[in-house]
Design a protein around this nucleic acid. Structure first.
Lengths: 198, 198, 198, 198
DNA sequence: AATGAATGAGGCTTCATTCAT
DNA sequence: CATGAATGAAGCCTCATTCAT
């Protein structure tokens, strides 16, 4: 899929329909969402799903890919912003807002074994590293945290609200703010464990 | 578990074996862990699982119950500690250490429909509320957070490390410390959303 | 069956194969016939059974439905016959001949909870009531029996022969004749219990 | 079981409890009644069932055996009655009343492969043959029916009412009377099929 | 002798995937 | 190309039967 001829118009449209439908179904039913339901939601036949995505994992990977692509674009734009601290917070806000789907834990299931996802994921790590580096240099975040720390923490706001059945849709903002306060230099206590490498 | 006669010695042993095996399998494969695998891991027949836990949900509920029971006991003990702030941090540490399983998200699947779990869960909320109340009164945590906030956040340290395949086993301590720093009064910024009720 | 688009040719064929196989298996093994055996007998995969009949009960219902439909058609035709007594006997003969399966006791298992079966069953009762009414008015059957009596009795000829392992295939005709003789006015003795309502 | 030493008093009592419980359970749930339910209803452990009846089929056979024994005793007594026609009707009445359990179709499932049941069943056929022979000789039933005919027909009254969910408990009497009217000489029409041999 | 815990084959059903139409 | 029918492995659960207590 890394560089194939452009799809015919209707095929391209089906692909988008499928990605949207799959994203919604996964958000609602987790990784157990059935291919049949996705096909029905997209208004296409089951076979069409497999024409576009030979495997359910490939479908998951495509979603993750899109998500990372969008985030990477946003990140690169924010690297040019004036205030590095505000830029980082804005980045995390964008990431969390991206439809507060349960999380990106699909990543675990499929991303690990997909070359495309790997590539874009690596790019993502670089981008976050750059954003965090700028913020750290600017004194907006404490000196003992790394880009990887932020990558790991950035899904937490959505995660914690996901366990509340009828949470208000923007509740995640509260926890993003709390966690971000923990990243600030003011009142920082030493951390008991070193950051993970990579 | 509602006051029945004590199990025969071998049955009690199998029950423990099963709970341990199930806990491990769930930790490794999520809620999709198969009953057959759990039975195999416990070294018993498939039917034995269903003698002890008529339903897969019952098995999940039993695990959640045990976990909450242990947590509640620890919480009550810590309510008597001298330093309220240290007590809260210790409580969160204990909770996170309790085998850093992915999370307690089993709760969603089964807790909602099980009377025993409901009861012990409510008790859990009370305990955390009390611990947070004491810490807040003692100036150890900022005034704008509630017990529910802490309940929601307390699984996050395990969650964030779970996405790292080969994380060092105690990495969660780093993120617990970071998040706890966000709960402290020093350098607190106003929160954009009110806390969820209940 | 409620007015859906016609099935694809091969699907329709499989549906018939399945109904025939299921009818045979149920006749041989009673309601306990396994879906796997039915699938094997029809020469299709187990999953195909559930594509056509999402539930074992649905399969049973479909058989019962077909049977009642055929019977209803025959009954309506016979309502136009000249001799009402001969028409009733002919109807009972047709019903018994319809593959002398053990009985229609599948009805109990599924019919009660299926709207389609309910509808066609009610129609069936009406038809038999009409046939019996005509025969009674024409003096062909005794005055103290009702349509419901006949409905209840009409499975008996097949039932009684079913307990004979190697009965000749047309033995049921003997018992239908005997029972029908009991319905005639000649030599009728008063009945000790009133007919069931409905 | 054909001649073993007499059971200890409590064992004998358990045997009776089990037979009664099994009879009830089979009557309620058909041949699918579970051994566990039977044991619970009898107030004994599951293992005790298998001490008395090594196999579920053996339990069924024991019930059938008891039933046939009782019927045979009644039949022999009625062979001495004055009015042969009344005696036959009385016999059929007794048979049908014997708890109008669904039927004796357990016979099919297990009786065929059990020597004891075979023996007592053969005896049963002889008894009915004798009863019918006397009635026929006395002009109480038509000349073209045999003992086997009656054996086959005698379960029908219970069978036909069994398909009515809320039938009055004595409804079978109505259908026994109707069927018996069919056996009388008055108004008999020739039968289309010969009686089954044996 | 009685109990009930353990077993595992087998039942119904779901679903990712393949393939004829 | 799209469709949806077919497949069969795998999941959860039941139950007759065995066996340790």
């Amino acid at each position: 899929m890394t560089s194939t001829r452009p799809l015919r118009a209707d095929a391209a449209r089906n692909r988008e329909l499928l990605l949207a439908a799959a994203t919604d179904e996964f958000a609602e039913h987790g990784l157990d969402a059935s291919v049949a339901d996705i096909a029905r939601r997209a208004g296409v036949g089951k076979g069409t799903v497999f024409r576009h995505f030979p495997t359910k994992d490939d479908l998951v990977a495509a979603i993750v890919l899109d998500r990372f692509d969008a985030l990477n674009a946003a990140g690169e734009r924010l690297l040019l912003a004036e205030d590095p601290g505000a830029a980082l917070l804005e980045f995390l806000t964008i990431a969390a807002r991206y439809r507060q789907q349960r999380d990106l834990s699909f990543l675990v299931g499929a991303a690990q074994h997909n070359a495309d996802v790997d590539r874009v994921h690596r790019k993502f790590l670089e981008t976050v590293n750059a954003l965090v580096g700028r913020a750290r240099d600017g004194g907006a975040v404490r000196t003992d945290i790394t880009g990887t720390d932020v990558v790991l923490l950035m899904c937490a706001p959505n995660y914690v609200t996901s366990s509340l059945p009828d949470a208000p849709p923007d509740l995640w903002q509260r926890y993003l703010a709390l966690i971000f306060d923990g990243l600030r230099p003011e009142g920082a206590h030493p951390l008991p464990q070193p950051p993970p490498r990579e």
